[in-house]
Design a protein around this nucleic acid. Structure first.
Lengths: 156, 156
DNA sequence: TATTGTTATACTCTATAACTATA
DNA sequence: TATAGTTATAGAGTATAACAATA
């Protein structure tokens, strides 16, 4: 029997449309803070602590040259700083400046607040199942990439 | 009581990380078909039927000039065509070429297949609840924007 | 040799502002 | 006047290839 209220939303379509929605929220919040979505993502990632360029390329799925430009522009705007790594003179660590950290937290919280609003209509039972089910989908991928978001998990 | 197995994944963090994962899948599949993610999104949207520029700006959340460029490049590559609208001589409809339609379906199916694989580990019960819960989150937003993906819903 | 990161280059994506043509 | 779409321009994002410095 086909559901009559829901428009036959397949799981994959649900996932794609949800991703577009989150992306849109990310874009709107970024703009409110005068950031590009990519800068916001970078900043949120760094809230967990400084990360090297190679680590960032893996977390953001970017080529290293692309990342150089992204960090260049963020650095020029005073959001992040390159710190030479004492143990490897080739490497550097990217860290938030105080100004960058402040914006990062505000952007992070802004995204979280909007998503909370969107999910506010869900019964608690559905919220839990949603987080759990998504967690299961992410488990394999996260183990592989170590990607994180926000300040909940320290960078490694 | 705090869950012990799950790493305390909040709902908002789950949503953001899921979105990043879907985005990554989209990017990989696009690349396999020699498309940019934006071109793939455009093509998938047009599978439902021709849409005018204004409708596309709403669906893709782009300024009209940004869309002009996106359509220009897709048209130059033979993926889409501009068709003058008989009822309004200012307007045009964007439609897939046969080549574009073929690539669109392949990209769409490629994304769907990868997401299916990622969700394959979920018990059927969780899959259903996941789709339902996401559908509830999308309901309000979809009613507002009319965004769609793929061939499941005709463009209006 | 391998790894870390940058530079050079070309293209795509995006927004703002000004414009044309039609409604 | 308002709407549909384009053009001009500038900046941001991205990848490939070649490079420098260090491990």
């Amino acid at each position: 029997m086909v559901a009559t209220e829901a428009p036959g939303l397949s799981l994959t379509e649900a996932l794609v449309r949800l991703a577009h929605l989150v992306e849109q929220v990310y874009g709107e919040v970024s703009r409110e803070h005068d950031l590009t979505p990519q800068q916001a993502q970078l900043l949120c990632l760094l809230v967990g602590g400084p990360i090297g360029m190679t680590g960032l390329t893996r977390a953001l799925h970017l080529e290293k040259s692309s990342l150089t430009g992204l960090v260049d522009r963020a650095e020029k705007r005073g959001l992040v700083a390159r710190v030479r790594d004492a143990r490897d003179r080739r490497a550097c660590l990217i860290e938030l400046t105080p100004a960058g950290a402040e914006i990062a937290v505000r952007a992070h919280d802004g995204v979280a607040a909007r998503l909370e609003t969107l999910a506010a209509g869900l019964p608690a039972r559905h919220r839990d199942l949603l987080a759990t089910a998504i967690g299961e989908i992410l488990t394999e991928d996260t183990a592989r990439t170590g990607r994180t978001w926000g300040r909940l998990e320290p960078g490694r």
